[in-house]
Design a protein around this nucleic acid. Sequence first.
RNA 1: GCCGGGGUGGCGGAAUGGUAGACGCUACGGACUUAAAAUCCGUUGGGCUAAGCGCCCGUGAGGGUUCAAGUCCCUCUCCCGGCACCA
Length: 803
Amino acid sequence: MNKYDPKFIEKKWQDVWDNEQTFRTSTDYDKPKFYALVEFPYPSGEGLHVGHPRPYTALDVVSRKRRMEGYNVLFPMGWDAFGLPAENYAIQTKIHPSVVTERNVARFKEQLRSLGFSFDWSREVNTTDPSYFKWTQWIFLKLFEKGLAYKKEMPINWCPSCKVGLANEEVVNGGCERCGQEVESRIKNQWMLKITEYAERLINDLDTVDYIERVKIQQRNWIGRSEGAEITFAIKDTDEVLQVFTTRPDTLFGATYMVISPEHPVLEKLAHKLTNPEEIHAYQEQAKKKTEFERAELSQEKTGVQVQGLTAINPVNNKEITIWVSDYVLMSYGTGAIMAVPGHDERDWEFAKTYNLPIVEVVQGGDVTKEAYTQTETGIMVNSGFLNGMDVDTAKKEISAWLKEQGLGTPKVNYKLRDWVFSRQRYWGEPIPLIHCEKCGWVAVPEEQLPVRLPQVANYEPTDTGESPLAKIRNWVETTCPTCGGPAERETDTMPQWAGSSWYFLRYTDPHNDEALASQEALNYWLPVDWYNGGMEHTTLHLLYSRFWHKFLYDIGVAPTPEPYQKRTSHGMILGENNEKMSKSRGNVINPDVVVEEYGADTLRMYEMFIGDFEKSVPWSTDGVRGCRRFLDRVWKLQEIVQPGEEYSSELETQMHQTIKKVSTDYESLKFNTAIAALMTLLNEVNHLGKINKAEMRTFLVLLNPVAPHITEEMWEKLGFAGMLNEQKWPTWDEEKTVAQTVDIGVQINGRVRGEITVNLDDPAEVARAKALANENVLRAIEGKTIVKEIYVPGRIYNIVVK
RNA sequence: GCCGGGGUGGCGGAAUGGUAGACGCUACGGACUUAAAAUCCGUUGGGCUAAGCGCCCGUGAGGGUUCAAGUCCCUCUCCCGGCACCA
């Protein structure tokens, strides 16, 4: 027998799969379907990282198993190729990002191919391909049409030295990721998408999908739904009012002052009434100057200024209360104004202490002179007029009814989720397909003119003003208005990287369609995605954004299901051998090419599945890789001991059925490590016996195939088994045969194991008892004692309680 | 601070309330070899031991439920991840 030579074998089978289009998805829509999705990568210049193959192998395993179970499987791959690294590289080298992208894609593809994934490459998509982003732009126009895209003044992160608007994730500790320069906040007019309009559905529909719990929880927290009331406070001697949002309307009697955010419009409106305008303006200026970072850093110390000249009226008792301005109240949440209840809110308590404001206890149970009492379960209302004596829940209901009756307040739900800032002042992204006309305003580029392509340029540097580099390409910017034909200008902002990835799973179903983003037939058949695995870091952005777009497409009749993904799971990160995050600067990066070169793709795949709990982070171990290679070497050698036999042998029958069951169920529940352990155990047993028959060998190869497809396919062929391995049926197990008829069980005395006996599973208790009491060690342990109780769990344990 | 997840050998990790440590790695011993590597066999939680079996301790800490707890309940503690003045 020749040596196991992965380099030769892997190349051979990859070519076979390519030439025969083995894993091409069928368009036979009558077959049961299975749509497996992994997050498509950004093709960086670094090439593939050992982190990438972990989720890919996992769903490759599931996909390969599903095919053998008779499903029509869609397991596609593509490129999320718009993005900053290619653009930054272009600025440095003047090489067009599309050239760099093409190069990187080729490399990534080659690397992925070398790992033997069963992707259907005929369905490859690329977000930077005009035939793809035509539909990204089309979706945007639909959003615009339905009023879900709007333009608004918003601050962006600006690096004054690079003259570039930065994405939030490019700001590290308040500085520019590349040059370290402190980032400024600049106000820009930006396109926004109204994701908040979908907040309620994005929360509620989580109940209809099978996501791992931590993903659901993180999404719920991010959306941050809270129920409360909006209450109107009059401002004395004016027609103006202050609206506040509160989750604790029950504490209204304890509202002893109000706080508005520095950006609150009332300061402008009633500027003439202010008696300390300089002081207020100074505070507003100070707040404006603070970057987000500083605001967070200084968050402990409460600062503020009283708004003199204005007094508010507490609607429940008509008491006059002071108004303050402070940056602990955010304009972007609720109404930008709050009623301060220092007795029962920690922030208000702190502020009241700093400025010596009155604190009134309205819920009994704590000591409001020492700290805010925020417990709501047991407290009883006091100092609250008609609410006195009620518990918090009752008081909430009563006061809400009262407010409604008086026309002073309404129940209200608020979300932490903000609208999505959709503009980027960048070159390498999808152009936003809108035209601004002096006469007609913002006008959509007509559908038949899509896609709006990026102009070829020589320079990618952004402008001093923070505008997109596109703004300088005048012959691209200047156009005519589609509505009136007059002179008009194109929008120069581009879309964020999240745009293309918000719908790519739809495109895979019908990737070459020119008439629509995908045919209704394909969408109806393939959606929802049956299983989507991706990183936890995408839970609050990509996952939420794509659910939002999908729901929108559902509303306009394009997507056939309210939710895009039926099931979502997540993998843990792979760390360096020193247990730190893998990075160039830490010098602990493992290159998958090197592992493939030295040990083979099957070894890499297997190790990535065996390395540990799939859902947890785990450090790389080169020794562990070698262990997997040793296993495959031993598998290879099984060829030498294969015996005839078309039925499982009596020695192995039970274990065969156990292993089929274990492997089949573990592959389904992300427990690849224990599935592989079961195969190792089986191999050890086979080697002890020194033989394996054909029936056993076949099953073993099929079970191992999803993890190590090349070696198993090669052995299948060498052993002369019929057909190709990937065409075989997934083996089944017989539940009855998974149970050994005789087992060794422990005998416990008072819960401690004192001996071991061998029982037949169907032994009655008396027989087990006789065996237990015949055991020398057991006898010694109960000598001189009285048996009080005996418990026999068949096949598990015999426990004797003695005194 | 809030919300998740988690503490099990030297390491990665297994364990429907039923013999804790499967499987792999490491280390050690042996076989093979002129030698080494590779491979194969054995040992590998700690302690005690008369070496015969055996005994004691042990899943972050403390308590509880149970014939029986890594697993269930209570209290505490530490680590990781996310959010963070969200009214």
